[in-house]
Design a protein around this nucleic acid. Sequence first.
DNA 1: CAAATTTTTGACCGATCGGACAAACGTTAG
DNA 2: CTAACGTTTGTCCGATCGGTCAAAAATTTG
Lengths: 215, 215
Amino acid sequence: MTTGMDIPAPRRTRIQQEKRELILEAALEVFSTNGFRGSTIDQIAEAAGMSKPNLLYYFRRKEDIHETLMQRLLDTWLAPLRELDDIGDPLTELRSYIRRKLEMARDFPRESRLFANEILQGAPRIMPMLEGELKTLVDEKAAVIKGWMRAGKIARTDPWHLIFSIWATTQHYADFDVQVRAVLGPDRGGAGRFEDAARFLEQLFIDGLKPKSQS
Amino acid sequence: MTTGMDIPAPRRTRIQQEKRELILEAALEVFSTNGFRGSTIDQIAEAAGMSKPNLLYYFRRKEDIHETLMQRLLDTWLAPLRELDDIGDPLTELRSYIRRKLEMARDFPRESRLFANEILQGAPRIMPMLEGELKTLVDEKAAVIKGWMRAGKIARTDPWHLIFSIWATTQHYADFDVQVRAVLGPDRGGAGRFEDAARFLEQLFIDGLKPKSQS
DNA sequence: CAAATTTTTGACCGATCGGACAAACGTTAG
DNA sequence: CTAACGTTTGTCCGATCGGTCAAAAATTTG
């Protein structure tokens, strides 16, 4: 596999920027609902309102679109975890991290599903990033959380699995959205379901993490 | 879309039973890692060790295989939730439900990913089941949980989102397995990761659900 | 044994896949 | 104007897709 970029480093005209953005937007829609193998260039081209050869003028190969989409995604996707730092109250830090992750599931469900699709299929295209950048970041934050536990600020538990559980519960509302809405029904599954989820998750995590001496 | 079954009701020979089972086993492997659209009949046939026309002799269409797989899955998949009943201690009931779901994620990860793939792609083939059978079951169990809350046996919270969070956290270890193992690394990500997860989830949920008077 | 039936396969079909290519089109600079 | 350059598209390619079909092979039945 080559690096496979197209119109080199300096994106020439403003038209190219706009068209590339248009394609990436369309590709996000298609890839996130069909996966990489299940998506076709024709689908993306049609969603972007252009012919297939025209699309291939901006992105030489199908993989290049997916790769560009992934690189952008990962930066913004891990931003909330990066913001988790040692200053401030631990419980407040965790609570706002959960809230930010849930807001991302609400506001960027397609990005969440794109990521979920990639992981589900064995992460063939981002495995090095998982073992490298992601693991490093999580280990670093796990150490921070462990410090909070040693200081008695939060209950002692496994920091890695704590992070997993936050990811799982929040992303669930993006990845399994159709199931959530189907089960909640038209009334409870409306726009307010994210507020309900936020309230529930706060109670679940905070009460579970609060040191026993404080409760 | 027709009902599209093949060799009618009475499965004749034992060979047919065996071959159908062989195909379903192979299809589970392929569908769960590539999704429906991303999987091909050739892939399934090769995984089952037979030619494509031979496979199509037992299942007329690609969709028939997927449909059969789904019907089987859903029965066993919801079994743990069905077992959640009003007899016994509420906290113990919930704890064993979480444990059973986590065991299913450990022992049947392909089934979990098959289901996740279907939901991720908008559940086009099982939407009626979600709005019907699944919603009915969840509403029923939510009522049971609500009863426990009224009786002061567990903390008051949203029963539907509680069920969602159990699904999300347990299935995460099947659906996002490659990410979990990549982040935990070769040491912590070994065979013991499910025991670690079980310990963590028990602490998270039980301590969070325990009535404050008891803690 | 032979006849009937079930199982398996090679060859093939039209549709669609990712992608290539040259020609046409639009725009801008001189 | 014309030449140069960036953009768009119709057409085509080999590979693969889901699925068909007739015939061969294996098995069961009498």
